[in-house]
């Protein structure tokens, strides 16, 4: 079973990963985006860290950790990744309800719902060169292990390189979006890698 502290560590590890990789995310966002993905996500996750540390509002369950994180991202990121990641975490958190501990099966089901909500909000599908290209294969591999999910997400992110963007600002570039790794898929892989690290007890 996974307790509230597990989810706090997940968010904290994700924040550390975004801190570490912010420059790379922004670099990936330069040729096909508006060069703000790293800085936007960094601002959002730093706010998540602060909100969870503040103890106000109090978070007493895994679901509350993710819902607070999601709300914080929506209100602080300033780019499309805010509502998208915010929706992912908030919907996942809502699915978990107010249980003090959740099983890996329950988390997997909740993440499926969260990824579904992201697809609905953005109107994207796998192959559109978006976050979903990492999240969909990632959550599909959760049944195997958290590490398998992180690896599948990472592989999915790398596989966005030859794709032409069909959603978001990059889609305006048409064929010129080909040949670049999608920043959103890359940060999605970081999020699932953070989950795997925490599950493995390394963080």
């Amino acid at each position: 079973m996974r307790d509230t502290d597990f989810f706090r560590r997940w968010m904290d590890t994700a924040t550390a990963a975004v801190e570490r990789e912010a420059d790379r995310l922004t670099e990936l966002d330069s040729p096909i985006g508006d060069a703000d993905h790293g800085s936007n996500l960094l601002r959002g996750f730093m706010a998540v860290r602060a909100a969870l540390a503040a103890g106000e509002p109090a978070v007493a369950s895994p679901g509350e950790v993710l819902q607070l994180a999601g709300r914080t991202l929506i209100s602080t990121v300033g780019g499309a990744s805010g509502p998208l990641y915010g929706t992912l975490l908030r919907r996942t958190g809502k699915e978990l309800g107010d249980a003090a501990e959740v099983s890996d099966d329950a988390l997997r089901e909740a993440l499926y719902a969260g990824v579904g909500a992201v697809a609905q909000l953005g109107g994207a599908a796998p192959g559109d060169k978006t976050m979903l290209d990492a999240l969909v294969p990632g959550v599909a591999a959760l049944g195997t292990s958290y590490r398998a999910a992180a690896d599948a997400a990472e592989e999915g992110a790398r596989a966005t390189v030859p794709l032409q963007a069909r959603k978001g600002r990059a889609s305006y570039l048409g064929e010129r979006s080909i040949g670049h790794q999608d920043p959103g898929a890359t940060s999605s892989a970081l999020l699932l890698n953070a989950l795997a690290e925490v599950a493995e007890g390394a963080a």
């Binding site: 929506i74 499309a80 509502p83 998208l84 915010g86 929706t87 908030r90 909000l121 600002r169």
Partner: peptide, 15 residues
């Protein structure tokens, strides 16, 4: 207008 404006409004409505 675009992208994050639309998505942010949608998520605030859902919330």
């Amino acid at each position: 207008d675009l992208g994050s404006s639309v998505l942010t409004v949608k998520s605030l409505l859902v919330d």
